[in-house]
Amino acid sequence: MIHFRNVIKRYPPKEVALDGVDIRIAEGEFVFVAGASGAGKSTLLRLIYGKERASTGEVVVAGRNLATGDAAHIAALRRSIGIVFQDYRLLTRRSVLENVTLALELQGIPMAVRRRLGMEMLELIGLSERADALPPALSGGEQQRVAVARALIHRPKLLLADEPTGNLDVKMTKAIFDLLLAAHSAGVTVLAATHNLSIIEELNLRTIVLDKGKVLGDFARPSRVE
């Protein structure tokens, strides 16, 4: 599903965000990317959804080399995957329901169908009563659930989550990971960047640890990550 071949990402003038990263993530995996702030987790995800391009090396996602893809190619890739951002990136002038169904709207699905599927999704995340609310009226945890629902509604093959529980309490963290795990068990490949070691430890799933842009370790089933 994802293949990094000796990827280096530099930011001018001299900052190296990723330094010779080689990783391969198969379809259907749930993988954590762990590391301290500035380790390169977000850069790695941004390379996968084409927000950044590798300075050298190759990033292949779902069989497509992103180094050679044009804007239309990148847009098509983004429509086929789901992305959850740490800062939610919800459209503040659109209702919760419109946010959740945005991916369907971009696929050209009629409004009535979008509304039906969106309400079901909101039911699933326990926010059906807030369907017409605007995102700023929701709590951080609720907004993040909306963001996850938006990323999942169109059945993506790949779900990227960048610090999905960064600012959330334990209860909300659990609710978000319930959703991610449910998506994974339904066949979605999940790649979640986090510095939350306790959740990594509890879930005991494959974890790639980054430090200063380098892969420090790739643990298949880490019983404990230091």
């Binding site: 009629p110 079901e120 699933l124 449910a182 339904a186």
Partner: peptide
């Protein structure tokens, strides 16, 4: 925790699978 997560995950997975089941062959906007 793992047990709790597993049970919630099961329910959610079923709900997601059901929702995605309806998402195939959706009509396009006129």
């Amino acid at each position: 925790v793992r047990e709790l997560i597993r049970s919630v995950e099961q329910d959610m997975r079923n709900a997601l699978t059901s929702l995605w089941g309806q998402s195939t062959n959706l009509p396009s906007m006129t």
